[in-house]
Design a binder for these strands. Structure first.
Lengths: 345, 345
DNA sequence: TTGAAAGCGATACCAG
DNA sequence: CTGGTATCGCTTTCAA
């Protein structure tokens, strides 16, 4: 045990003014660190006299004191940080909006939302990196995390791990977002409209497989047993690529195409029109996501409208899971998709 | 001083298996916590025998040990966290790409990039919240942070604060992104093409003022002294709003319009065409951002191409600023913009 | 009403 | 080569 060491003769103006701690505030206010903590946290358990409160607040203000989040959460044994991986591929407006809602809603519930740049670490590597931050909850699109990773996170104190994706993951809450449903709607719509040879655009750009694969799979399901065929059409998001595809369009003998989303639809539509392929007469065209841009095309684009669960809902799910540790991880919602028929198919 | 309390008779299977600490690893490996730390950090300062290393690694593996980032950074006195506010309005592809590059580049330099959901706190409030996390650096679009905020962050240990925006901020490094330049290019181009009455679309949606105000200002500068006039055209990103604007188009007597960006250009173009306003004959149309979608329109959209500095450059700036604390905060780069003339104006 | 002190988990100094 | 141990900033019991 050792006496509080009095500071060594300090330079009157320290070169790098150290960041003030609660001890500095205490010293300046002439109280103990405990009192500082009570005052600044409005601790209900302890009554502090008004004059003391004022002195503490003034001292904190004067020093520009900012509490040290890491130290706090180290002491109390948990944080209120909700971690999400930062999307590694530019997120569309739909998903961006969803994320914003989620952040806002979690903020209202007094969580701190943090998007972590996983930087290409994958699987357990990523889970490890996230676990180091000891988040109270993790929300993650499926694909990046296996049951392994979920286990790591839970063991390191995460009270809730929510996976958004097409399939259940052992140990995690699942927000069921099955994009096969998107493809299924589109496929069913086209078949019902009498189309027989359906092309499906698959983006060449990396990072889209998460959606494109299930959407393709959905189309396959929809045409099953109808005698219609499905043709994969890999397509890069570039004008020349679209032109090439359109150039061999007639040889493909397709009478319909589902374009993954509205942006690829726009790309392909222009190329088809440049080749004088009639849309929708010769080829029906259906996009997805129901972006405004689709309504601006000529012909107006038929599309699949996707209803994501609201950010608020997900936030409440997270909150419930955090507060009730015994709560059994479970599937919680589902993605709804329906075709909005317009002029292109 | 108190003897290490032997655990109270522990249940054989703890209900909530506490997250393992380095002490647990030490215990299992039969070594001290110090040794564990040395081994797991590959400490060069100390030689540890190979058998010991193995035992430690095995113990860590078996327990699923994950180090506690907060505890570490508390001890060492700093983190390698670079903090950025999460964009509160869906970021366009241009900015998204920039952010991704930046994240990747910072990751390569061994920083941990974290996007923090500021949740509508503004100014010093936000700076305070960020400072609590004790990031080693902060990268922030201007507008959210004054000299005050910069000071708070620096005082709480941030070695670098980089502001991206049109103006210098006291105490911060500035990545000069002056969007007036975007408007200036567009304006100059239109004036040079003989246009006299120039409309400028201002998005009604909140969160775009950061760009729309300087872009408008830039157009104003460009026409100054040319006799041409500038008319503000507030426009919501909705079809009906565009239709209304187009409906009164001829009464506005404009012969050119700069639409803030390519998406608003597409919106307005369709509405103008529905009103049989000739583009570019009657009205020239210039967008911004040079998105692919502009090239897909008929007529192909003239636009302002923006050259953001690369994420790698900014990452290096951050790194330099972090490593050299004495480095004087300074303006560091600038936004380049040039018109890509196509068919619409 | 206030203060002393234990301790969260990890690191690094200094003895052995 | 390895093990005590003080320490980072903060919260919280327990005593005064």
């Amino acid at each position: 045990m050792r006496v509080q060491t009095p500071e060594p003769p300090a330079p009157t103006v320290p070169v790098a003014p150290a960041t003030p701690t609660s001890a500095d505030v205490a010293r300046l206010a002439g109280v103990s660190r405990a009192t500082v903590s009570y005052v600044l946290n409005n601790s209900r358990a302890v009554r502090i006299s008004e004059p003391t409160r004022r002195r503490v607040h003034e001292a904190a203000e004067e020093l520009g004191y900012v509490p040290h989040a890491a130290a706090r959460s180290l002491r109390v044994g948990h944080s209120r940080m909700v971690l999400m991986p930062a999307p590694s591929v530019p997120a569309g407006p739909l998903y961006s909006q969803f994320l914003n809602d989620l952040q806002w809603a979690l903020g209202r519930l007094d969580y701190t939302v943090v998007q972590y740049g996983g930087m290409g670490l994958r699987g357990d590597q990523a889970a490890r990196a996230w676990a180091e931050l000891r988040p109270v909850a993790v929300v993650v699109p499926s694909g990046g995390l296996g049951p392994q990773g979920v286990h790591v996170l839970k063991r390191s104190g995460a009270r809730a791990v929510v996976v958004m994706g097409p399939e259940r993951i052992e140990g995690a809450h699942t927000l069921l977002l099955d994009h096969r449903e998107v493809g299924r709607s589109a496929g069913a719509h086209l078949v019902a409209a009498g189309r027989r040879r359906i092309g499906v655009v698959i983006p060449r750009e990396a990072g889209h497989e998460v959606f494109s694969v299930p959407r393709l799979e959905g189309v396959r399901r929809a045409v099953e047993g109808t005698g219609a065929t499905v043709t994969e059409l890999p397509l890069g998001y570039r004008e020349e690529a679209a032109a090439r595809l359109a150039g061999r369009w007639r040889s493909l003998r397709l009478d319909a195409v589902f374009t993954y989303n509205d942006e690829y639809a726009q790309l392909l539509l222009r190329a088809l029109q440049d080749e004088r392929v009639g849309v929708p007469d010769e080829t029906a065209l259906v996009g997805a996501d129901d972006l405004l841009l689709g309504r601006l095309l000529r012909p107006r684009l038929s599309t699949v409208r996707i209803e994501l669960p609201s950010g608020r809902e997900l936030a409440e799910l997270v909150d419930r899971a955090v507060r009730d540790p015994a709560c059994v991880p479970q599937v919680h919602s589902t993605l709804a998709a329906r075709v909005v028929p317009r002029e292109s198919g």
